[in-house]
Design a protein around this nucleic acid. Structure first.
Lengths: 339, 339
DNA sequence: TTGAAAGCGCTAACAA
DNA sequence: TTGTTAGCGCTTTCAA
């Protein structure tokens, strides 16, 4: 059926080893031999079989990247940089989506089949630390994003609490005093959310104010829609606020839409800060002030740690922090420009 | 090193075949035997090796999905539905990004290694029809989206020309008379773009008007940024228009931003129609009227044809049209509601 | 510089 | 119902 290494060898009148040498351009081959083999390869249209190769070498050249859903812009943008950096390092990336269900997260971590990928970069949504820890070791693993990672597993994140504190401080510097939070889960907030809320609280209390619990506008699920609904509900309930820290840019976009519908001006009446700096954050009107994680650094750190694990490194989990910065745009401008 | 089927067989005191039967839950196994084997599997933590399996069966259970860039929302949303539908059919999806370069498109089509995936769904950006045709046959292939596909290859698209004509007719029904087009390439427009332009022209001329070439606002590259720039430039040049048909929602979002910056009202001063119905189209303010391809149908059609090819079907290329509809939102409302 | 042959771990045809 | 065994196509010692 398919053309095999052996067929090439036969046609070229050499051994399989020689063909293999040519394919991997092993240096010490007589030019004439090489030419003959190359001609045979071309004539037959030979293409090495990936699976046979992998079975023989035990290496796949593939990495998996798992998270809930590619259609979430942050993840799509992350996938892009991970794929690109992985490519530079000689790996391709298999995307795995969990739909944010624990069952799918388990499936991916326990990886029913061996040898599919050499390693896994995983941003959990639901899986608790303890389970994560118990599943480590099956495949080289690096965790992304979540607040709490087991000590035994490598982990990259940004300083969520610090970033939330900065963002909140920015709003306070703008003279805002009734600062709400939008987009956290109604029940069982994720670790990430808790960290962001902690930073938010820290800055508010640091400025001598108190958190008004009624301004924590939780939303049923992530995404713009439910954030918009949360803001609409708050407005309908007569809640008043002059700024909103949003769990992510999607929530900010939903909030923006809800505010504009009800005739409120952003940032004059309500200032808004998002999180993630997705592409759309530059194109809303007003554009979004947002926390921009250094996604490239994040991905690079994760990949490098993963490659070390694949290479056999077996120490304790390393927990590293990637950079972030507050990108100031129109929805919450520099204090000088405010008012 | 790793636990093999043979190790399990040995421990359970049965043959490899029996273990294999258990793993694939082949029905006719004595319960006692099954229990013994399962115990051995659990004790050893056995997981079958995917590559050995693939080598033996010649089937990978993987499909590749290739396009330029996942961080483009339309592609991210497409990837999500393809992955989900493929999952229902027992396949996983390997994402391949071409960055819109011909070189990468070639790499993916010529697929240096055999046996990586069972088939490929590919949305080309640059590759010309002729080359596409010559590369077919290496791997089961279905093409997506582009206007011109070789007769020999399966192909799914929406009726670009028809949809563009509808969208334009909608703008005309709204009373718009100076309708521009935004977001097409400056040079060498893609087939898709040409089809959309054709539909645009068709409706305009069908209404007894003429296309004003100065209202074709080409942009350097795709994306919101360059569309915004194109609109800004047009405005600066004093061009006047009362509607814009945008090549895609990203272009519409960029155009919207540019219009709002210059104080124009949408849809009162300029109505806008986008294309793709990405999630963000519902959350801009005003929300976007847009052409919504039936992405689910599109993906399902592509997958089914691909599975047939994988199953050995070898007929001529089938060219099928997936549905679309004009989703009317605020940026170009129903005529009745206008003014 | 090139050849021969033993795996890599699993499947599946054929027996028993 | 279970066992035997010959591949799947490539890599990789070890010789020559």
């Amino acid at each position: 059926m398919a053309v095999r290494l052996e067929d090439v060898a036969k046609l070229a009148g050499v051994s399989m080893k020689t063909v293999s040498n040519v394919v991997h351009d092993y240096p010490h081959i007589r030019p004439a031999t090489r030419a003959r083999v190359e001609a045979a390869i071309a004539e037959l249209g030979y293409r090495p079989n990936a699976n046979a190769r992998r079975l023989a070498t035990g290496r796949t050249g593939m990495l998996a990247l798992a998270f809930s859903d590619v259609s979430v812009p942050y993840f799509a943008e992350l996938a892009r940089v991970v794929a690109s950096l992985a490519g530079d390092r000689g790996y391709r990336v298999l995307l795995e989506q969990t739909d944010g269900t624990l069952e799918r997260e388990r499936e991916i971590l326990s990886t029913r089949e061996a040898g599919l990928v050499d390693g896994l970069i995983f941003q959990p949504t639901l899986m608790p630390t303890a389970e994560l820890a118990s599943l480590r070791g099956i495949v080289p693993l690096v965790l992304l994003g979540e607040g709490s990672a087991p000590l035994s597993v490598d982990h990259v994140m940004i300083d969520n609490t610090g970033a939330a504190a900065e963002a909140t401080a920015h709003l306070i510097a703008l003279g805002r005093r009734r600062i709400g939070f939008v987009g956290h889960e109604e029940t069982a907030p994720a670790p990430t959310t808790l960290q962001r809320l902690a930073g938010y609280q820290q800055s508010i209390e640091g400025a001598g104010m108190r958190v008004d619990m009624s301004l924590l506008l939780s939303s049923g699920s992530h995404g713009a829609q439910s954030a918009a609904d949360a803001v609409r509900r708050a407005l309908a309930d007569g809640k008043s606020f002059d700024a909103l820290l949003c769990r992510d840019d999607l929530a900010a976009i939903g909030a923006l839409r809800a505010l504009q519908e009800s005739g409120l001006r952003v940032p004059e009446d309500v200032a808004l800060v998002g999180w993630d700096d997705i592409m759309m954050a530059s194109f809303t009107h007003p554009s979004l002030t947002t926390i921009a994680p250094d996604t490239t650094a994040l991905a690079a750190l994760a990949l490098d740690m993963l490659l070390q694990r694949i290479g056999g490194y077996d120490g304790l989990g390393r927990h590293v922090i990637a950079d972030h910065r507050l990108v100031v745009r129109e929805s919450a401008p520099e204090p000088a420009a405010a008012r």
